[in-house]
Amino acid sequence: MFEFQVIINGLLLGGLYALMAIGMSLIWGVTNVINLAHGALIMLGAYTTFWLFKLLNIDPFVSLAISFTTLFVFGFLVQKYIINFVIRAKMFITLLLTFGLDILITNVAQTAWTSNFRQTSPAYSANGFSFGFITVPYVRLSAFIISIILVFALYIFLKKTKTGQAIRAVSQDIDAARLMGINVAKTFALTFAIGSGLAGVAGSMIGVLMPITPQMGGIFTLKSFVVALVGGLGTIFGPLVGGLFLGLAETLGSFHLGAKYADIIVFGILVLTLIVKPTGILGKNDE
């Protein structure tokens, strides 16, 4: 019975991981940038919701939209005025740059808000429902549902809208897209904006479930990467598959081996995936 509860917990955590990774996966797939500042964006989302709740008493689920918009604008500006200048440099330079951004954003947040632990704690944050032996916390379930909704929303956006089609075209072939009259620079900035906005939403949810600090981002960057990678790069449903996989692996692993092995499991999966099947579960093999 315990096992079943553990699996439920794992799936719910997986939903959260999927939500975290959608943005990173999108940005990676379209612009070929692995955004090492992704965790810092999640952190900013968490603080946005925290302050809105604390100062203005705005419900975290209401402030999701504000968090998305704030990070959307932030991501757009960061891409347009910083990352764009190195977008065609060696991939290592883009990695270095985003790592620099990560450090910078973290340090600014630390100066502004100190390193104290905080948490967005609405009255219902500890509530849940149970049937039989199983307990399901509301907030985690909501994060799970939101994650699935967002994956499908992104799918529809990319398939059905003109902007979405431009994004997909650019991800396939920049030169061809340009010939079709697509503004590549703008599309990149938009992609980055959407990816950042989604990171913001993930941060808002995480802030209700876990403590917030300016340094919280690092581990989320790596986990998002693992999820995006395991699920399969460039696939829309990859993050969902990868997120559920990682959530289950981490929860089951720490249940059976001990909580202190959680990180070893996560990074073990990362390194093994890279070595064995770098194209991920849903990704295609190539020679």
Partner: peptide, 21 residues
């Protein structure tokens, strides 16, 4: 054996694994 991004992130992961171990 890995190239580009994959090598960079794999090494980042190994650093974290060693810390955890």
């Amino acid at each position: 054996r890995l190239k580009g991004h994959y090598f960079a992130i794999a090494t980042l992961g190994i650093g974290e694994i060693m810390m955890a171990i």
